[in-house]
């Protein structure tokens, strides 16, 4: 199959899989989906599972803890079924996304649309630049800590890096929009 057609077919398959994952409400089916995604990942399964867990951990933990607290306060019971369903669904969607990004050339997949390709180029260039700076934040903390950095220093450095990234991402997005406007994008 032509590489571009193959990438587009994979994009379609990914979109269908994500919609299915959002529609499933039985923990057993969601667990089967997670196992299937890991099987598809092959040798990369552990790396992709780790990425998906790290990416969803904070969000899932906060949502789960809040909902469990709420249900416990009202009924003095634990919503095990809900917890399993929601967390497996989030994990499955993250796994599918990381698997898709690892396997598919996004530029080929979105090649059918000039506008989507432009947006992908903009997003990728921003992400690469921000990733370089994020690496510098980590190295700078390392270079300034005489003993291995303590928790307080790590939290402060991480918070500062996140705040900087948000500021920079907003400023970059604003500049990109201005550049697109200057080149007639919104005409």
């Amino acid at each position: 199959m032509n590489p571009a057609h193959r990438a587009r077919a994979q994009l379609l398959a990914y979109a269908v899989a994500v919609m299915l994952a959002s529609a499933l409400s039985t923990p057993a089916w969601l667990l089967a989906g997670v196992l299937a995604a890991l099987l598809l990942a092959g040798r990369q399964a552990l790396v992709i599972l780790r990425r998906a867990l790290l990416a969803t951990l904070a969000f899932s933990a906060v949502v789960s803890a809040t909902y469990v607290g709420h249900v416990w306060w009202l009924t003095a019971t634990l919503p095990w079924d809900w917890l399993l369903t929601v967390n497996l669904r989030v994990l499955l969607m993250a796994l599918l996304t990381f698997l898709f990004i690892a396997r598919v050339n996004l530029f080929l997949a979105l090649g059918f649309s000039r506008r989507l390709s432009f947006l992908l180029v903009l997003a990728t260039s921003q992400a690469l630049a921000l990733r370089r700076t994020l690496a510098d934040f980590r190295l700078a903390l390392h270079s300034r800590t005489i003993r291995p950095a303590g928790l307080r220093a790590r939290y402060r450095a991480a918070a500062r890096a996140m705040a900087w990234l948000l500021d920079r991402a907003l400023a970059n997005a604003h500049e990109s929009a201005q550049a697109l406007q200057a080149r007639g994008w919104f005409e």
């Binding site: 700076t133 510098d136 934040f137 700078a140 900087w164």
Partner: peptide, 26 residues
Amino acid sequence: KRGEARRRFRREVGLLFQNPDVMLFN
């Protein structure tokens, strides 16, 4: 990674990054 070598080196060698933002978190 740790130990006396790290303490001595980090104290004696300083790197000023091109983007000062990455160094400031206090």
